[in-house]
Design a protein around this nucleic acid. Structure first.
Length: 451
RNA sequence: GUGGGUGUAGCUCAGUCAGGUUAGAGCGCCAGGUUGUGGCCCUGGAGGCCGUGGGUUCGAGUCCCAUCACUCACCCCA
């Protein structure tokens, strides 16, 4: 028999891992809830045409398509293999399904509608370190308002979540309108996408390499010089809280540039009072974001650590995402947390709090039928007090039961044999220190809670 | 989509270059040393179609071909 295994790019999660994952999901969910977002779920699969064309050429290729089943598959194979694809595909992200959802249920929703959604998504990518074919996204979006207060609020959500998780982050912000102005000012207004994907590489590649790439795409030398001037004026540094004046001057003369600048400055001003707890908001002109539906603000969150995990969140405003599903003029803005990368990051820096990630607190050793009955009652009492407790199911050798407690990292074991039961006491052992004490049976819960 | 790497015990890996008895180690697992005490230590044990198929050879974990799987990097992205 073949060794059991899971498909490429997917993973099983063992209990220890699940506790840590649930901790992350819990922190994010708490913040979403506190900001008034409502939970929804959508199916794993969507109609293929719901997804195609929404993520750009590259994205379309990475959509996980599904084969036909049964008769259709048999017929398709007989006819020619390519048509064996069905009209369904696994969802690629949570934003497009949400757009579909919004249009479909528009009469049942009250706008502006704030929703959050924590579910897996799938990409037919070649997996590599920190990248999987199946992974979770935690999205929050609000549709039905163009108010920039939403953008400012998302900045606060980033701040709250990462403050709670203990990860210092930079929230990078940019605006697609500004990027459009960049394209105009280099004399290639219709080629924003190409320009922007090249600029996005600036934090990895030196300027010259990026210019070479643009030359290959037949951008003129004048365009490159103009671009270089813009980049120089946008250089980060002292302009910690806003857009550099020099850049504002260069791009302000274009209508979309002016608009983009105003939007950015508004968002900066609304995250001022009160200020952010631990996150820093940073303008970054080279931030582009691959998804081509963004139209206004765009976000990306990167940890302020050495760990090479890349961005752990993304987001932005899309003025007309629902338009393609037949519901025009519905502006939305949203963000997405990459739970798997946050996990890897917390693991790397040892950032998981012990208390949030432990299982059973108390194990009762099983000495036999009568003693077991007695312990079962004590277990019941502890559970009623909110303490995680269990009785070992079999009266097997004590060594085995103690080892079980040790393996599962259970903090306390309770020994109650004939003698203890007669005297109404429990022998409690702290596994970490080995200290063992006799406790009156009624005080066990109190004893556990006090340590 | 492009390029590299690796498949040997539950896990991590040696053995492959130079083919030759019964394929090894560490960790883990099981049992015992210890009949009411986990970790540390000691003793013993179980566990392998050497990814799969074919070929070369007297003989293949080792060489050749094919195939599958996993993995890393690029592109792109969370």
């Amino acid at each position: 028999m073949r060794k059991p295994s899971v498909p490429k790019g997917t993973r099983d999660f063992l209990p220890g891992t699940m506790r840590k994952r649930n901790y992350i999901f819990g922190v994010i969910r708490d913040v979403f809830e506190r900001y008034g977002y409502q939970p929804i779920e959508t199916p794993a699969t969507e109609h293929l045409d719901t997804l195609t064309g929404k993520y750009g050429e590259e994205g379309d290729r990475l959509i996980f398509k599904i084969l036909s089943r049964g008769d259709k598959l048999r017929k398709a194979i007989a006819a020619g293999s390519d048509s064996a694809l069905s009209e369904e595909a696994l969802r690629y992200d949570l934003t497009v399904p949400f757009a579909r959802f919004t249009v479909q249920h528009q009469n049942d929703l009250t706008f502006p509608f704030r929703r959050y959604q924590i579910q897996p998504v799938w990409r037919a990518d070649r997996p590599q370190k920190g990248r999987y074919r199946e992974f979770y996204q935690c999205d929050a979006d609000v549709v039905g308002t163009g108010s920039l207060r939403c953008e400012a609020e998302f900045v606060r959500i980033f701040d709250e979540v990462f403050t709670a998780l203990g990860i210092p982050v930079d929230i990078r912000i940019n605006n697609r309108k500004l990027l459009s102005a960049v394209a105009s000012s280099v004399g290639a207004p219709e080629r924003m996408t190409e320009l922007v994907t090249a600029m996005d590489k600036l934090d990895k590649l030196p300027l010259e390499r990026v210019k070479d790439e643009l030359r290959q795409k037949e951008f003129s030398e004048e365009a490159l010089t103009a671009l270089e001037r813009i980049l120089a004026s946008a250089a980060r540094g002292d302009a910690a809280s806003g857009v550099p004046d020099a850049l504002a001057e260069l791009l302000g003369e274009f209508p979309e540039g002016k608009k983009g600048l105003e939007e950015l400055q508004y968002i900066f001003s609304k995250t001022d009072k009160p200020g952010l707890a631990t996150a820093r908001l940073r303008f970054d002109l080279s931030l582009a974001r691959g998804l081509n539906y963004y139209t206004g603000a765009i976000f990306e969150v990167v940890p302020r650590t050495d760990a090479q995990v890349g961005s752990i969140c993304g987001g932005g405003r899309y003025d007309d995402l629902t338009g393609i599903f037949g519901m025009p003029d519905m502006s939305g803005v949203g963000i997405s947390f990459g739970a798997d990368r946050i996990y890897d990051l917390l693991e790397a820096v040892g950032g998981f709090p012990e208390k949030e990630t432990e299982g059973t607190t108390v194990l009762f050793v099983n000495f036999g039928e009568a003693e077991g009955d007695y312990c079962a009652e004590r277990v019941h009492a502890l559970r009623a007090e909110g303490i995680k407790a269990e009785l070992y199911p079999d009266a097997v050798k004590m060594k085995k039961q103690m080892k079980y407690a040790d393996d599962l990292n259970i903090a306390f074991t309770v020994l109650a044999g004939e003698d203890e039961i007669r005297r109404s006491v429990l022998k409690v052992k702290q596994m970490k220190t080995g200290v063992q004490e006799e406790i009156p049976e009624a005080e066990l819960g109190k004893y556990i809670k006090n340590i």
